[in-house]
Computed example of a mutant assay.
Amino acid sequence: MKQHSTNYTNTFIEVAEDCPVSHAQVPPDKKEKTLANLQYEKISKHPYQYSSDDIIFDGYAFKNDISENEKQKVREQFFSKGQACLRSSPLAKRYGFGFHHNKEGKVAIFPVESKEYQKFLTDPDIAKTKAMRSKRK
């Protein structure tokens, strides 16, 4: 079974062109944890520890209440089809965070107003791509 991946290496995902904020915002807490909350917590508490695939699948597993002992099998099925990558994350589309994927494919987030964010934008050795827009042009 062919496995697809959402992982990038040595790449910076910029906030979407139509991101509504100029300063990053932590996703607000709601009764039910949102995908944005889950992704923010995992990446902000553990920078460069997880790959994009880990983050995307963990959100799916949480939302679908998948047990620990089912995770490996379900993960293989999940990635047998292409999945949306972090370019579609609400953190980059709505909340003003960019994602840096290091050479090992591990992810960290950076607020749009931070010096680090600006440094990634100007680094010629890092590939850049924008998060997906929320609205069509």
Rank of each mutant, 00 (worst) to 15 (best):
K71R: 15
K137R: 13
F110D: 00
K42W: 07
H46Q: 10
H100F: 11
M132F: 04
E17L: 11
E70Y: 09
D125Y: 05
T34D: 06
Q3M: 10
Y60A: 11
I55Q: 03
N37T: 12
K71Y: 07
K2S: 14
K135N: 12
Q83A: 11
F79D: 00
A92T: 09
Q39Y: 06
I55C: 06
N10S: 15
Y95S: 06
F62T: 14
D58G: 06
N37D: 13
A36T: 08
R136W: 08
G96T: 02
P28K: 12
Q49E: 14
A36W: 02
P28T: 12
A24F: 04
G96Q: 01
L121M: 02
F110G: 00
R87A: 13
D18E: 11
I55R: 02
K115Q: 12
L121G: 00
K81Q: 10
P111L: 01
H46V: 03
K128S: 05
M1A: 13
M1P: 07
P47N: 07
V74F: 05
E113M: 04
E104W: 03
H23D: 10
K2V: 15
L91T: 02
N7T: 06
M132C: 05
P90E: 10
E70M: 13
A108P: 04
R87D: 04
I126D: 02
K115S: 14
N7E: 07
P111H: 01
S67G: 08
L35R: 08
L121K: 01
S51N: 06
V74A: 09
I43V: 15
V21Q: 01
E41Q: 14
N7R: 03
E104R: 11
V74N: 04
Y117Q: 05
M1D: 12
D125P: 00
V74Q: 07
L38H: 11
E70I: 06
A16K: 05
Q3Y: 02
K106C: 11
E104V: 04
D18P: 07
S22A: 14
A92L: 07
P27G: 10
N7A: 04
P124C: 02
E70N: 14
F62E: 14
D123Y: 01
V26C: 12
F97V: 03
T11V: 07
S134Y: 02
D53A: 10
T129P: 01
R133M: 11
F97T: 00
S89C: 12
E32I: 05
Q77D: 15
K103W: 04
K2Y: 10
H46E: 12
E76W: 03
M1V: 09
R87S: 11
S67H: 08
K42S: 13
A36K: 02
K135Q: 11
D29P: 09
Y50F: 15
M132A: 03
Y8M: 08
D125H: 08
A36P: 03
L38R: 11
V74H: 06
R75E: 13
P28D: 10
E17N: 13
E68W: 04
Y48W: 04
M132W: 03
S89H: 02
P47C: 09
D125T: 13
P124Y: 01
H4W: 04
D54M: 08
A16S: 15
Y40A: 05
F62R: 06
P47S: 08
D54E: 14
F99K: 00
G96I: 01
R87Q: 13
I13M: 05
T6H: 00
K135V: 06
E17K: 12
K2N: 14
V112P: 00
Q77H: 12
